[in-house]
Nucleic acid binder design. Sequence first.
DNA 1: ATTGACGTTTACGTTAACGTAAACGTCAAC
DNA 2: GTTGACGTTTACGTTAACGTAAACGTCAAT
Lengths: 133, 133
Amino acid sequence: MNATATNSADSYSISELAQEFGITTRTIRFYEDKGLISPERRGQTRVYSPEDRVRLKLILRGKRLGFSLDESREIIDMYDPAHGNVEQLNRLLQRIESKREQLRQQQRDIEKVLAQLDEATARTQAALQEHSN
Amino acid sequence: MNATATNSADSYSISELAQEFGITTRTIRFYEDKGLISPERRGQTRVYSPEDRVRLKLILRGKRLGFSLDESREIIDMYDPAHGNVEQLNRLLQRIESKREQLRQQQRDIEKVLAQLDEATARTQAALQEHSN
DNA sequence: ATTGACGTTTACGTTAACGTAAACGTCAAC
DNA sequence: GTTGACGTTTACGTTAACGTAAACGTCAAT
């Protein structure tokens, strides 16, 4: 009765996710190879949970920020309950702060480039003015 | 009389730039191969102007934002006087706006990830609390 | 005149992140 | 019963962005 949701519960096929995020199934399997996603199997077939979907979304977000898959994995791993000892937890806090600083740098970089683009727009419009004379 | 500025005027050697920006000379030559920088030659030796230095800085900024060298080149090329006809100038405005939109997306992404990191910090500190009991 | 520090060119090697193709299984539809 | 859509594994290919090594020139210092 529904074209997109063939399955019973809250799950997705690989091609559903591929289409939703505009990537290929090959890419999704590649992420699995790299240990970024671990879908269940119904026989041979991969079945993706909402959590898997979220992880995929986070990976692609990291990608847009120029993060490598390893970096994205790191950030994702920061999210779940830290199950380590005190030393590990403190190192985690360090890594988090380090990422935070990197992102702040990116924010500054973006501001600079946006300012550049403003100037570029101004100059281009000025050049267009010339043509109208 | 000066250790860093051997040359007469406002110019840099390849190793000076490499050291300043924390990259290798190989990398700088690679950028030249790709047509991103075009230093002058004093005989065989490359001599970099302040403009070359700025271009290098812009390349590295793009790199931090996850831009490819081609994308960085595009942005840099947007900066100089647009020497084309009206059609070209209008296409340039389009590309600029497109880049702007991409950067805005990155800003949103960064905000999301920063929020994630805040949560991660909170959970990690909570886990540390557990250990002190 | 040889040693270093710095520069050069040429060229093969490497890693990440997939693309692409082959060869096959499966299941509903015609 | 075969066609087509979707899934699978296996494996080789590709592009970007450098790394690394070889083999050499140059110039100041010892």
